[in-house]
Amino acid sequence: MLDLAIGIILGGCALGAGCAMIAGIGPGIGEGNAVAKACEAIGRQPECRSAVTTTMLMGCAVAETTGLYALVIAILLIFVAPGRFVKILLDAVK
């Protein structure tokens, strides 16, 4: 019975980590849009190349934040959460 409970905890953590990374879709679309527009801008005005590139990288980094939140949560779910939840379970069983 305890094995089953621990198995459910581990499986739940892995599933949660996978679901959390669905958030990667958002930054992907956003950064793609940003780079596409930057390419258009450079095509129109090649002399602004360096300024556009710098701004685009800044924007990409900021747009990436939500994806990184998801990444941090996924990493916590994989490396930190199982041990903690199993410990809580074992304490409760005692």
Binding site: L68, Y69, L71, V72, I75
Partner: peptide, 16 residues
């Protein structure tokens, strides 16, 4: 929070 997570997440994801 977002500044710390952004920097840490990028470097850590590279390592992983």
């Amino acid at each position: 929070v977002s500044m710390a997570f952004r920097h840490y997440g990028n470097i850590l994801s590279g390592t992983v």
